[in-house]
Design a binder for these strands. Structure first.
Lengths: 217, 217
DNA sequence: TAACGTTTGAAACGTTCGTTTCAAACTATC
DNA sequence: GATAGTTTGAAACGAACGTTTCAAACGTTA
């Protein structure tokens, strides 16, 4: 049985958005590759912005459910900071892998969505994401902060975004990096291997000594 | 005396590209804000791609000169890994600050250029950058690698890009992050303060224990 | 000043984009 | 099987884009 129009559009859009970005992907590309009429997007999603938000929602929904469960468990532990942070990052990357079904374009989509939450170029998406997923985001930050006890609020804020950047860059460029790696080191690495490397680096960066808010000189 | 057309275009283009990205910035926006004729871009730079590459060159040229000097000095030191890495990251961020003249949009431009070197969306820029600045890039990687002696080549490759991602994300979103920080923590942070935080985290991430290339599970 | 190469200005070209239109096809209900 | 509501299809719209054209203005040299 043929998949419904809405799902076909979402599947294709999610792939193309992940591979080429929101602006660089046209509705004509999406609809033709999905085998549906051009007008179907505006009929079912109202506009291109509506489609982008729908893609974001379908992607984030299972991720938030999975992370919510993990955070509930981790939130009760308070003793071993190192271990909790390790479990937290491992869980976050595992959930991402599961949701992304190990395809690079879906992983890249995740990174693009996070990036959009901070960029002004997709203002509608920024507003949508911050309104929709702020609670989970804040819970994640709160648990992380509890296990970085040497920092004040602002120091943690900056540290958090350093960690986020490390993840986002690796995720969004995982395909290109894996390609370079295959050529330079003759090693065909898959996503689970790449992300495994990330965990201990994230933990170490979390545990790096706190620097006073002074100017770089 | 009025600045020459070419420089006015480059100044405006660099600002707009940094603030809104290459695709999202139109030649009409650049030329109108620069107060020059629309056709001037194609006359002086051949095409929009030519303009982007010219902007990249004008930005990277002084950066490469400054970094070359720093790397020559650092390349002779071999004893204290921690100290050399600290100096290296501090130097890199200081050079970036100098070149970017402390304006967020120029810092963001730097991050966008680095990102383009890994993205397929601006293929011409990727090729241009890798051909033009590969030597400096490789020298930087080589010196860094010498001070992360516990890693093999491939492990260093991944670690390097984790560090790069941390920098790129912080640099490209520094304006948005500073704005959030000002609201949440009533602290007006400037770029030198933000980047100072980054140095010790970069070093710690460099010194994080090496993980075998296993799958995340 | 005359002539020539360079630069600028205003307009248009051809494409692509998101969106809209509206008739045709389909589907569910009575 | 007729009807009403939903979905699809083909075409067009208006706007924005990069690029091109070509005459006018400028600057330099003889």
């Amino acid at each position: 049985m043929k998949k419904a129009t809405v799902e076909r559009i979402l599947d294709t859009a999610e792939f193309e958005f992940g591979a080429h970005g929101f602006v660089e992907t046209s509705l004509r590309t999406i609809t033709s590759k999905a085998g549906v009429n051009l007008a179907a997007v505006n009929y079912h999603f109202g506009s291109k912005k509506g489609l982008i938000q729908a893609v974001a929602n379908r992607f984030f929904e299972p991720l938030t459910v999975g992370m919510q469960k993990r955070l509930e468990v981790l939130g009760t532990q308070h003793d071993n900071h190192h271990q909790v942070l390790t479990e937290l990052y491992r869980g976050l990357l595992l959930e991402t892998l599961t949701i992304a079904q190990r395809t690079p374009s879906r992983v890249a989509l995740f990174a693009r969505l996070i990036n959009s939450a901070y960029s002004q170029s997709q203002g509608h998406l920024r507003k949508h994401l911050t309104h929709q997923y702020a609670p989970l985001f804040l819970l994640l930050m709160q648990i992380m902060r509890e296990h970085m006890p040497s920092m004040n609020h602002e120091q943690f804020f900056w540290r958090f975004h350093h960690l986020l950047g490390m993840m986002v860059f690796t995720l969004s460029n995982s395909e290109a990096l894996a390609a370079i790696c295959a050529v330079e080191y003759a090693a065909q690495r898959e996503l689970p291997e790449i992300l495994q490397q990330l965990v201990s680096v994230l933990v170490a960066a979390s545990e790096a000594p706190v620097t006073p808010m002074e100017k770089l000189a």
